[in-house]
């Protein structure tokens, strides 16, 4: 095994058995089903999944920002020694925007359109760090410089609509970084951006992560995007983690049939053109219509009887190591080999 398993790294965030339910017409339906996730100190974790897999809800639930009809049913989320899901509201407020920074998908709607961006960056500084206004503005200028906005001092007085999409996302990142968070959660931060701007933002986050020594959770649907960005990847399908592995390991040796299907369905720029893409048939189950066993079984070509009857646990591939997969068939194939 490699060095990562030898010295157990310190876990900054440790989510155990998190389940989330939504109220529907037919009663409560499980959207997230007993997820286990962790983020080590200084690590960048990529959470990958298609729409509706529960990747964004999981992160929102940690900050207790879930919409009305959606509730956490069970689980714990240990962050720096305390449970985010049970801590008091005043403690939680210190964590939100303080120790944990958030960057959302749409920089158009996540910024307040009637507030100057300087004021929006200063707000967490004044609230969390009890800074004086003048000091906060100096820090805000530094932050804008940090995220690569030219002539930052003048930009403080700009309104969001005066900035381009890429610039706005940089401002969002500056707000997320304002209080030197230990963890930055970025929810599809580049999905709304063009590819050349996306490249700028990815480079920026890579650079900042090293400079500030923070942990990052990057939520995305785009496997290609995180290949060069993260240390470890957790693949979500229908509210469960189906595979969790170091990034090189995951791409070199994808073990869950869903991960394999997902990788195969991405056209690669460097590939010699093939005519047909391999695709996964069918569609993910809707919440409330989850199959009894493995959620992927109805779309899985390798599915056996056991897959349709019980839910496979997320276990280290081959018994130990950082590569974990929730698949009966993959585990057995390895044993046989």
């Amino acid at each position: 095994m490699n060095a990562m398993t030898m010295s157990a790294p310190e876990r900054l965030l440790d989510v155990k058995g998190l389940s989330i339910e939504i109220d529907t017409r037919r009663g409560p339906a499980t959207i997230v089903d007993g997820i286990n996730l962790h983020v080590n100190k200084g690590e960048t974790l990529g959470i990958v999944g298609e729409s509706g897999c529960g990747k964004s809800l999981t992160m929102l639930s940690l900050m207790r920002l879930l919409p009305n009809k959606i509730k956490v049913k069970s689980g714990t989320a240990n962050f720096a020694g305390r449970d985010l899901l049970t801590m008091s509201k005043s403690e939680l407020r210190k964590v939100r925007g303080g120790q944990v920074g958030f960057v959302f998908q749409d920089p158009m709607t996540s910024l307040n359109p009637v507030m100057r961006i300087g004021d929006q960056i200063c707000e967490p500084l004044i609230y969390h760090k009890a800074m004086k206004r003048a000091d906060a503005r100096i820090r805000a200028t530094e932050l804008l410089r940090l995220v690569g906005i030219p002539s930052p001092a003048e930009r403080l007085d700009a309104f969001p609509h005066e900035l381009s999409g890429g610039m706005r996302q940089r401002v969002m990142i500056a707000i997320g970084l304002a209080c030197d968070p230990e963890l930055l959660i970025a929810d599809e931060p580049t999905t709304a951006l063009d590819v050349t701007i996306q490249a700028q933002i990815v480079d920026l986050v890579k650079e900042l992560r090293v400079k500030l020594g923070m942990s990052v959770v990057w939520i995305t649907h785009d496997l290609a995007l995180i290949a060069g960005l993260v240390d470890r990847v957790a693949v979500l399908y229908a509210g469960t983690v189906v595979e969790d592995a170091p990034v090189e390991e995951l791409f070199a040796n994808p073990s869950h049939p869903y991960t394999r299907g997902l990788l195969a369905s991405i056209p690669k720029l460097s590939d010699v053109a093939a005519n047909r893409l391999s695709s996964i048939g069918g569609t993910p189950p809707e919440p409330g219509r989850r199959p009894l066993g493995c959620p992927f079984a109805p779309r899985c070509q390798l599915a056996e009887d056991i897959c349709r009857q019980s839910v496979p646990p997320l276990e280290p591939l081959g018994g130990s190591g950082p590569h974990r997969v929730a698949c009966f068939v993959a585990q057995r194939q390895l044993e046989a080999a």
Binding site: E21, R26, G27, P28, A29, T30, D33, P285, G288, R289, R290, P291, L292, P298
Partner: peptide, 11 residues
């Protein structure tokens, strides 16, 4: 568990 088994009839 609040999961409902998926049957063809339900689809």
């Amino acid at each position: 568990m609040a999961t409902i088994p998926m049957t063809p009839a339900e689809l």
